[in-house]
Amino acid sequence: MKYLGIEPKRPKVGVFDFTGCEGCELQLANKEETVPAFLQAIEVVDFREISSTSSDDYEVALIEGAITRDDEIRRLKEIRKHAKLLVALGSCACFGGVNRLKNGYDLDAVNQEVYGTEPKETLPTQAVKEVVSVDLEIPGCPVDKAEVERIVQHLIWDVPYQFPAYPVCFECKQRYTTCVFELGQLCLGPIARGGCHAPCPAGGSGCWGCRGPAADPNLEEFLQIAKDRGFKKREIKERLSFYGGFEDMP
């Protein structure tokens, strides 16, 4: 910060969308009260959602969406060459997201189900980190703008950003939510990464794990708990695979 004699960096940022709903990009333009300051702090050189300019001159690349086509792989590798810092933005970019569900099925059948007689080119869904190296991950469906802001401030000023180690339960408790397990619902809260402020359980539906696993999750015990509470194996598996964040886990 200025009082320390440290001048801010104003990173040039490019935002790029791949296979996804663009909801995370929309989040970047969200939170009206701070949008001007946000756009002041960074220099957006490529961002289809808010501007028509396009450039290869960026230091930070924010990647939204999963990778599902050959041309996407080529484009992503090209972006990686330009970017000093590559950030996976949102659950799709971090884990493959909902798009990853199709990997559990026959690709042609999926194609036909969606596009009927006019199939489109498609590959098994990959997370960004499966294609190129990723410097920073901001999971969430969609991402939380406040968290994006903190990360941007971290890049500009080196102010601390601590990726929460704790699970969703912690923040759920902090907002006085009645545990949805008590209400007979399944919830990934005990093993999913917090930092989202637990909006889903507060809204009455259990956590779906859009931010992936918490640090050192106790999956074994969680599966036992879910089983003891009468949830079916299929139901639990479906929940764990929904955003693709728990795929690497045994």
């Binding site: 408790k173 902090q174 015990e221």
Partner: peptide, 13 residues
């Protein structure tokens, strides 16, 4: 501890 989810709920309530 093998059962503990490290979720912090105990401390919150």
């Amino acid at each position: 501890a093998d059962k503990c989810l490290s979720c912090g709920s105990c401390a919150m309530v």
